[in-house]
Design a protein around this nucleic acid. Structure first.
Lengths: 138, 138
DNA sequence: CATTTACCCTATAATATTTATAGGTTTTAT
DNA sequence: ATAAAACCTATAAATATTATAGGGTAAATG
């Protein structure tokens, strides 16, 4: 399951995507819409900004806005950013690889091989679905 | 990512699958093979037994054994048993459904709809790959 | 140029979950 | 009887997630 952080990130991105006509959106608007703590959401939006998905403007009249096209924000990017690895095991993660301590030989490990296949099929879905797909269905 | 519990369950099932020629396998044999705490593994094997995947024999000469054919142990079954939902959001889980508290209308939620698609594609993989696939690659 | 607004940043507290341990009970073979 | 090995439940320890706090910095406005 996704963490709340990631789920909230998707909510926020959806809201920002739906309000692309306006220059900026307040944290507060989003936090009220979904009943998310303002401060918790703030941290999430900051991470999305650092990742280059959102832009922001300080001061009066400021707020956040989408910097990317919704189609250029794949689900995989958001999940990796807030939740970490998509792979089911550390030993098959592309972005967060770590060997399994209990594993004598990755090459001989059937679990490793199967999980590589699972990872690739999951990635195929998560890299090809994007914020645009969410917005299309709202 | 899968919990260690689930990963260890797969290791144990793999070991048991590889030793189907012998009547029973000791917890200790498995725990030594993978460096898993005996007691921790014990709990896992018990759960697999209660789920009807393993059988056991008490007392001297006892131990665990696979009760199902490896092809009849889909990855999804093991994951659900030890880790819980496969779906990425509670509101799209088939076996552990819960509404999202922040959601006013599931029917109008684009995130919900996309995550249903993601779930179905993930299930398609995890229900069709089984212990047999792991054993084949060992 | 002072004030207000609103994002920026880091640290820490609270809570929940996962991982691991402990210690006894029951069953079975010899 | 004795030893071996699974069974069962509770709880402790460690880790991760969720949430809060409080000040810092930049921009707009009058």
């Amino acid at each position: 399951m996704l963490s709340k952080k990631t789920k909230y990130a998707f909510h926020a991105l959806t809201y920002l995507g739906k309000h692309r006509d306006q220059k900026t959106v307040l944290i507060q608007d989003i936090s009220e819409e979904y009943g998310i703590s303002h401060k918790f959401l703030e941290n999430i939006l900051l991470e999305l900004k650092k990742a280059g998905i959102l832009g922001s403007k300080k001061g009066k009249g400021g707020g956040y806005y989408l910097i990317k096209e919704p189609k250029d924000v794949p689900l995989s990017k958001v999940i990796r950013l807030l939740d970490g690895p998509i792979a089911l095991l550390p030993c098959v993660s592309l972005n967060y690889y770590e060997p399994c301590v209990e594993c004598k030989s990755e090459v001989k490990c059937g679990l490793n091989k199967v999980m590589i296949q699972v990872r690739d099929e999951m990635l195929n879905v998560l890299e090809n679905k994007s914020l645009a797909d969410i917005l299309d269905k709202e």
